[in-house]
Design a protein around this nucleic acid. Sequence first.
DNA 1: ACTTTTGTTGACCATTTGGTTAAATATTAT
DNA 2: ATAATATTTAACCAAATGGTCAACAAAAGT
Lengths: 235, 235
Amino acid sequence: MVKPFNQIKPNSEDMTLSQTLTQLKSNLTQIIYKMENENTEQKILNAANEVFQEKGLYGARMQEIADKAGINKALLHYYYRSKEKLFETVFRAAVTLMAPKIRNIISSEEHLFDKIRRFTDEYISFLSNHAFLPAFVINELNKNPKLIQDVFLLEIGDSFQKLRDDVQILANKGEIKPVEVEHVLVNMISMSLFPIIAKPLLKTMFDKSEVDYQQFLNERKKLVADLIIESIKVN
Amino acid sequence: MVKPFNQIKPNSEDMTLSQTLTQLKSNLTQIIYKMENENTEQKILNAANEVFQEKGLYGARMQEIADKAGINKALLHYYYRSKEKLFETVFRAAVTLMAPKIRNIISSEEHLFDKIRRFTDEYISFLSNHAFLPAFVINELNKNPKLIQDVFLLEIGDSFQKLRDDVQILANKGEIKPVEVEHVLVNMISMSLFPIIAKPLLKTMFDKSEVDYQQFLNERKKLVADLIIESIKVN
DNA sequence: ACTTTTGTTGACCATTTGGTTAAATATTAT
DNA sequence: ATAATATTTAACCAAATGGTCAACAAAAGT
């Protein structure tokens, strides 16, 4: 067990300075070791993440992951018993990274219109920097639908009931039309996510450079929100 | 060379009835053989299509394809030299199945609004029955972006220049706002395609049965078109 | 100091995979 | 009928792959 620094008392009578220094050194060594250790596991996860997202479950090679993590393949199996186990860990992490954002925005107490603006803004920003994520998640979910049950229901859950309430209330107040939440939500997610998933396709189709495409995505933040809001607003 | 039936003259003087029958039988045998032959290749393509769409390039196993086609693995390699070759054939076929619809609608001479309505209607209908297609295409395009150059540019090409013209003209006439074609197109494709790609996810999320989800997709045909049109129309 | 636990490695293994080959069978052309 | 050609198969192969093992190294607990 690593002894925290603040528990070391260099002036206590039963310790010489030399002893104190020895202790300190040991302490540091342990901490560094722990850090490198965590590094190993983290490096595995990072490497696995890259490879899985690039190649998918089947295409990924354990050797490639090990190489990318700078470790031995046996050590990979020491940390994660099997490829499937490692994959599931990475996949869950990916979903866990994406889901809370939806959940938080959806279930907050802001005005619905602000939620919509925040969603398109934050979600497009976030996923632009994790471009492989949504394609990865959706693709694997297509191939392995049973993963959804426990992974996604757990993350999203019934949090979007709040959204349903929002719509109900605003509709009663006459601020918005009595729309179906499912369609509004799907419209919003579609227009935000799809251009990221289909990026290589659309980039080619529109003959845009990487920078131009990022700019294109940026424009969409406001554009999509406005489109959605305008389509449900009354007046 | 198979001799068509209508070229067989059973009463011609140089043929006995027996000869005629023998000829006929041979004829039939050949035709049946040809049909079975085409069947073999077609069965391979069908099997490969299923397996590739389900498992992707890496996940697919040649043995599984052979089994599903009811033939030997060596025969598979006899028809298609390698896995990559077979995959490319299947992939091209998939794209070729999807792309012309976009192209035809986009480059037709109808009014823009009708194009939009036709697109959402026909595209959602079509892809509902080929649910794996878009996910397959987009996913493989993500993993193997170089395929786009020759496959997709060839199919879509610059056909959506027509759309740009449409928008220009209607904008000049004051019928629609001066919008950016790219965004309109992406909005339309997003809202049509995404719910099909993310079907397993959304189905779970909204707790819908298969039938309910199909109904949900059906509703979107009109809904999406109206949304798009309403967002660009002036008045 | 010494024992136990944890981390790391290289060599190894069984299985799977894409692909080949040589021989058999069927079809077509002469 | 026969030679040539196309189709089909079983057996085989080399390479790759996920996974294991025994042994070594480092830390932690005592």
